[in-house]
Write a protein that binds this DNA or RNA. Structure first.
Lengths: 215, 215
DNA sequence: TCAAAAGTGTTCAAGGTACACCCATGG
DNA sequence: CCATGGGTGTACCTTGAACACTTTTGA
């Protein structure tokens, strides 16, 4: 579960209460029940930590299956990326905490590499899809959005160009409302929302486009 | 297992000899052993059909886990994409056969949707990575390569532009050798090979690049 | 009036597409 | 010499980046 908090991309981890790796931080998860698919399962697991309605996007990441990834009998894990908009602050249980993905504590098992894979997946998809909607509140200013993108991507994304790129892709719609300007003045910002819902690939500049006539 | 055969993207299927779905076409696969990870397992399974050295690329696709995807106790499947260069014609067992991915026969279980997902994954990655190397022979002419790309992508890719795009990305190296011209004449084509090995992302024009100074 | 923040206009560069044109070979 | 197929040159278009400039607010 990833969220941009305090201008930093963070992941929700849970401190293990059992051996092995007692006390280390680990990803939430659990066993798959016979009557559910893996996505239903991960939503059920996460529901124990947060309100699942706060999950804007859930997608499979990869299967981790190395025989020695955990001590004892081999455990096959299907990892997911789940995204929470930055305006919610879920009530999380006592033994869980948010941690910056670029400054992780010592984690249990192979969970660090899973988190890093998730981070990379998010970074890619932010660029060529509309996935930003899952990190942003329903309404936002462009400068707030650029802060989110900057935090998630790990480098500065200017509001100017972000605005233009997303607008050109038809992803932004102005709500008409304005955000009040801060105490130090400045022009009030217009509020926008993402058009459509659900993730879709939006970068039409992918190479090897079909020939013009057939597009 | 995907291969371009006869200018068509095809998948290797195996005719089921057991109920349920006796006689239908299904993807090769099998149970995961306790001492192997999923990739090792799929390579072992495929080794029963072809020479594994012919697999130029193997990557995880997704987990399919719907409780009713197969009759009886639920089976969780981790699907893979495996690519075979077009110049090899593996000896396959009697009960297997190649089928065009765009004209599949009736398949067992959810295997049709798995194949279509694999096709879409391949199409995406052909565009922004060097994955073409896994579909092409070690040496090839540009026009042969454009036929491969056209078959895999499902639309015409012209040799002219394919040549330029791949060259600009530094993916092509001329071997110096020439292919003989056909019986109807024509200038003999130069032979090329892909530089490097293994898949890598090559489209540097992905959007939201880091600012110039930090690149 | 000035500082600060938002937003727009303009220019530039990168990279894919289209298409005309030239090259080399077989018959 | 001509048909055929390979290869190159060039103009164009789309799209993102950079940056100057304008707009709107609070103090």
């Amino acid at each position: 579960m990833l969220q941009v908090r305090c201008d930093t991309l963070q992941v929700l981890l849970w401190r293990r209460a059992l051996d092995p790796h007692l006390g280390r931080w680990s990803l939430p998860g659990g066993r798959l029940r016979p009557d559910e698919d893996v996505e239903t399962s991960i939503r059920r697991q996460l529901a124990e930590k947060v309100d699942v309605r706060q999950l804007q996007h859930v997608e499979q990441l990869a299967v981790f299956s190395a025989p020695d990834r955990v001590p004892g009998p081999r455990v096959v894990a299907t990892a997911f990326v789940a995204l929470v908009p930055s305006d919610v602050d879920p009530e999380v249980p006592e033994d869980t905490g948010w941690h910056p993905v670029d400054d992780l504590p010592r984690t249990a098992f192979d969970h660090e590499s899973i988190v890093l894979r998730a981070r990379d997946r998010l970074r890619s998809k932010l660029c060529y899809t509309n996935l930003g909607f899952a990190l942003a509140p329903a309404e936002f200013t462009i400068s707030a959005l650029s802060a989110l993108y900057s935090a998630a991507l790990g480098y500065k994304v200017t509001a100017t160009n972000l605005q233009r790129v997303l607008a050109r892709r038809g992803l932004l719609s102005a709500t008409g409302a304005m955000a009040p300007s801060g105490r130090s003045g400045g022009r009030p910002a217009a509020l926008y929302s993402f058009t459509g819902d659900g993730m879709q690939v939006t970068d039409p500049f992918a190479v090897f486009r079909p020939p013009a006539g057939t597009r």
